[in-house]
Every structure is written in structure tokens, then in C-alpha cells.
Simulated assay, not measured.
Amino acid sequence: MQRITITLDDDLMDDLDALIAERGYQNRSEAIRDLTRSGMQQAAQEQGKSGNCVAALVYVYDHAQRDLSRRLVDTYHHHHDLSLATLHVHLDDDNCMEMTALRGPNKDVQHFADHIIAERGVRYGRLWMMPSSKK
């Protein structure tokens, strides 16, 4: 582990200290390491660098939308190598939520999630990706 010295303006330091308190970090070093890892992962994704990830795809959809359930199932079957498990929740008479654990190459997981979220009848969707060394 290496020790470094950085200079932050007072406003940024106040924001960092507030984040540390809010999230319960034990010290500034832990927070900065976590934020650095997150920023590096985001930069790698934005630059299109290949790598593997684990991810959570969460979306809400109208289960009565014509053929949507069939289209979703077909998409999952065509990408069976990415999907680890799915939890299905009935929210009300019209809406369901699904949470899917995914694993695979970043760009394949992102493409799959984009396709699911773009389906007509999917109302909200979000993908959370984390780096993984597993293939």
C-alpha cells in the first residue's frame, strides 16, 4: 500500500466529510479508495474497455402489455449465459418488478440490459454493474 498526499479545497473536503459520515466510512482513506475504484470502473465502461462484471438489473413493467412476457422470456433464453437468477415480484394489478443477477462481459451485460429496458411496456429500469474477474 502506498501513502499519497492530495490537496482539496475546503468545499470539496466538507462534501467528502459529509459523505463519510452519511455512509459510515471509518476514515477518509477508505472513502477515497472506494470512490477511486468506482470512478475507475465508470471510466473503463465509458471508454468501452472490455472486462467482466456481475450486475443487478431491476425493472418494472406492465404485465398486461401485449406479448411483453413472451418477449422478455425469449430475450432471457437467447442470453441464458448471462443470467444467473431472477426474482419476480407482483407489485399491484398491473405492475411487476423483476430483479436479475447477471454475470459476463461488460458490453454483453450492458447490451442485454439496454434491450430489456427498451422493451415496450417496461416502465422503469436500472442496471448496476460491478467488476468481476470471473468469466
Rank of each mutant, 00 (worst) to 15 (best):
residue 23 R to H: 05
residue 75 T to H: 14
residue 131 P to S: 03
residue 102 L to G: 00
residue 8 L to T: 03
residue 67 D to T: 14
residue 73 V to C: 09
residue 134 K to P: 04
residue 103 R to A: 09
residue 109 V to K: 14
residue 24 G to R: 06
residue 42 Q to V: 05
residue 76 Y to P: 04
residue 49 K to D: 04
residue 49 K to W: 08
residue 114 D to N: 12
residue 52 N to D: 12
residue 36 T to C: 13
residue 65 Q to H: 15
residue 43 A to N: 09
residue 33 R to F: 13
residue 31 A to N: 15
residue 118 A to G: 10
residue 62 D to F: 05
residue 16 L to G: 14
residue 55 A to E: 03
residue 67 D to I: 08
residue 5 T to C: 06
residue 77 H to L: 15
residue 50 S to Y: 14
residue 119 E to Y: 01
residue 40 M to D: 07
residue 2 Q to D: 09
residue 74 D to M: 03
residue 9 D to C: 01
residue 81 D to A: 07
residue 128 W to N: 13
residue 119 E to C: 05
residue 96 C to F: 01
residue 62 D to M: 04
residue 101 A to P: 02
residue 13 M to H: 03
residue 2 Q to M: 12
residue 107 K to P: 05
residue 27 N to I: 09
residue 28 R to C: 07
residue 99 M to N: 02
residue 114 D to I: 02
residue 29 S to Y: 12
residue 129 M to S: 13
residue 68 L to R: 08
residue 42 Q to R: 13
residue 8 L to S: 02
residue 61 Y to L: 01
residue 38 S to M: 08
residue 108 D to A: 12
residue 50 S to N: 04
residue 91 L to W: 05
residue 80 H to T: 04
residue 40 M to V: 11
residue 82 L to Y: 06
residue 106 N to K: 07
residue 134 K to Q: 10
residue 80 H to Q: 08
residue 107 K to T: 06
residue 35 L to P: 05
residue 88 H to N: 06
residue 57 L to A: 02
residue 67 D to E: 14
residue 108 D to N: 08
residue 61 Y to T: 00
residue 29 S to M: 09
residue 8 L to M: 05
residue 122 V to D: 00
residue 123 R to K: 13
residue 74 D to R: 06
residue 64 A to Q: 15
residue 46 E to W: 03
residue 67 D to F: 13
residue 62 D to Y: 02
residue 24 G to C: 12
residue 41 Q to P: 00
residue 82 L to S: 11
residue 74 D to I: 01
residue 98 E to M: 01
residue 68 L to Y: 11
residue 84 L to I: 14
residue 40 M to W: 13
residue 75 T to C: 11
residue 46 E to P: 00
residue 51 G to E: 10
residue 55 A to F: 02
residue 44 A to I: 03
residue 48 G to F: 07
residue 120 R to M: 02
residue 64 A to L: 10
residue 74 D to K: 04
residue 77 H to C: 08
residue 53 C to N: 02
residue 47 Q to D: 08
residue 40 M to R: 09
residue 91 L to I: 03
residue 84 L to T: 09
residue 89 V to C: 11
residue 61 Y to F: 14
residue 39 G to I: 06
residue 3 R to I: 07
residue 79 H to D: 05
residue 33 R to C: 12
residue 100 T to M: 05
residue 27 N to K: 08
residue 17 D to K: 12
residue 73 V to K: 15
residue 94 D to E: 08
residue 45 Q to S: 09
residue 28 R to T: 10
residue 109 V to T: 13
residue 3 R to S: 11
residue 59 Y to T: 00
residue 95 N to S: 05
residue 84 L to E: 07
residue 66 R to I: 05
residue 75 T to W: 13
residue 127 L to Q: 10
residue 82 L to N: 03
residue 134 K to R: 09
residue 41 Q to R: 00
residue 119 E to F: 02
